[in-house]
Design a protein around this nucleic acid. Structure first.
Lengths: 325, 325
DNA sequence: CTGTTAGCGCTTTCAT
DNA sequence: ATGAAAGCGCTAACAG
């Protein structure tokens, strides 16, 4: 692979002129420009971008931390980010870290290392405090509500969405409401638990600790839920299931057991996944693709504009009424 | 951000010694090593990896071309690659190019640019010939059968899997067999069409051109298929649907129209997606995660071992009998 | 409009 | 065991 110097020689100009042509700068005479372009073609030249990254101090790359790409929630967010990245001519480094703190740390180090100009964290194991210490090295955005920190944030108000869902079930006459979560101590799980307690208490209903059903991530978990519920005395008559795939697993398995939705169980799913349309599941659209788009744009803007205050952006959820309640 | 020179000064050693400590080389006295480590800590030093990439000529990054990450097929392959990447301490650049030739070209250029050490192409718009011209710049693997070229390849034998599926339907007494594809001219579609024609002809059945149903990618396409089929005179009694999500859309919509699977239509899906378990869809497991793992490992091995011949690896599909036939 | 030159920050001979 | 010095390939003052 030839370098810029060899091109300069071949074209009979200085490296500066070559660089100017390469970068489309003005003030290059037509004939020299042509000579350079010709040399580039003849020698099959291509810039070594690592040298450019080194000298410019940027890489046109944004890192993305998430536990696993093969999950509707994350794939959909990633899709949104990737669409924006394509428009902006930016690259996305996919860091599938499986909620392992040390792997997340490695990615933060890559920001510090200048391997990436910014970072988007879709979900995390590390503490906000630890993440925040890296904010000086480049803009960081999280896909969750964060405030009072040097971190940007794009999020849905999970508290409000849960409140809406619970009130809806209540209005439909349901009084024994349970809900699922994936990880017990995730930020969204905490606000949902809070909303569950607050809302039911306010309505004069009861929020039961044993009706917080955790570890529900895939459809199998939803399927397993059926027996878990049948084993209870005084079982719930309504479920908020955080993830339509889990809800689908539950509903289809319930049918096999001779139970009907919504007669035996009312169900509200989350994310408005394709499957929810297919099964007519009432759901809450969390606008995942837009979360990805906005997170990308915020980080991208901060990179190009050279910093500024962190941005916090709430996207409204959408309640989609179908026939599972 | 301090650089290596400043660390050298602070520690009272040469930059060479600092570099040695940083890279864990031997032949550094314990006290100098300690001095360097101390200086690194005090000055909060972090290597600029772009300089390392420049001088070493590698980036520990592999690019991945795919049209859209928010699709089970690609997300699952990507998951496999990412798991391997994590183990090898390699990074993955996600290049979601939406089948746009020019975007795919940009990624190939990034390989040439040395922004990535190798490339995996999950699906493509460009010709193999064009892709092959980049093979000198780094190992390239495709997730499809490729031979006689300077490109590696990890694939499922779609011809054989289709043959298996069609014979199975035939044995179950189905004679009017149709099938869906996503893109008409993709490599896999071509081998499937070939298998369809060959197999049915061999069995003495008929392969009908109007029973090749294209544009089937998402569940909506599957849902739309029902009416498309009902509008035909002499409609098929069996369907091979390349993608379980599409199959699910078809089956659930068919039920709403009062049709039964497998009574009115026998259905065989593809990919062994979670939904196929949920709906008891007979399917063909294409081992997507393994395809991703192998593709990554092949490229990774070629990078670390410095080239060698391209590798071609076929993974056997698995026929999963459930109750949609 | 063009070229000289000084870096960007790091690794790695090659001496010692 | 340690350091001086020569790059890796490119950009951007600065001087003409």
């Amino acid at each position: 692979m030839p370098n810029i110097k060899q091109i300069a020689e071949a074209a009979g100009v200085s490296v500066t002129t070559v660089s100017r042509v390469l970068n489309g700068h003005p003030y290059v005479s037509a004939d020299k420009r042509a000579a350079v372009e010709d040399a580039v073609r003849r020698l099959n030249y291509s810039r070594n971008m690592n040298a450019v990254h080194l000298i410019k101090g940027i890489t046109q790359t944004i890192g993305v931390i998430l536990p696993n790409i093969n999950h509707y929630y994350f794939a959909r967010i990633m899709e949104g980010m990737a669409q924006q990245a394509l428009k902006c001519n930016y690259q996305l480094m996919l860091c599938q870290t499986d909620y392992r703190p040390n792997e997340e740390r490695k990615v933060l180090e890559m920001l510090r290392n200048k391997q990436m100009d910014g970072l988007i964290i879709c979900s995390r194991a590390l503490s906000l405090s630890e993440i925040e210490t890296y904010a000086n090295y480049g803009p960081i955005a999280l896909c969750e509500r964060v405030s009072g920190r040097n971190l940007s944030s794009v999020y849905i108000d999970h508290y409000a969405s849960f409140q809406t869902a619970i009130r809806y079930l209540w209005e439909q006459g349901r009084r024994r409401i349970a809900f699922t979560i994936s990880r017990r101590n995730s930020p969204s799980s905490r606000s949902r638990l809070q909303a569950y307690t607050d809302t039911l208490t306010a309505l004069g209903g009861q929020a039961r600790e044993d009706w917080v059903l955790d570890g529900c991530i895939d459809w199998e978990d939803g399927a397993a839920l059926v027996d878990r519920l049948l084993a209870m005395e005084g079982r719930p008559d309504a479920l908020l299931i955080t993830g339509d795939q889990v809800a689908a697993g539950f509903i289809l398995t319930a049918r096999l057991r001779g139970l009907e939705v919504p007669d035996d169980f009312a169900v509200i799913g989350f994310d408005n996944q394709p499957i929810s349309g297919l099964l007519e599941i009432t759901t809450i659209d969390n606008r995942l693709s837009e979360i990805g788009e906005r997170a990308f744009s915020i980080v991208h803007t901060q990179i190009t504009s050279g910093g500024g205050k962190p941005v916090s952006e709430e996207l409204g959820f959408r309640f989609i009424e179908r026939s599972s309640v």
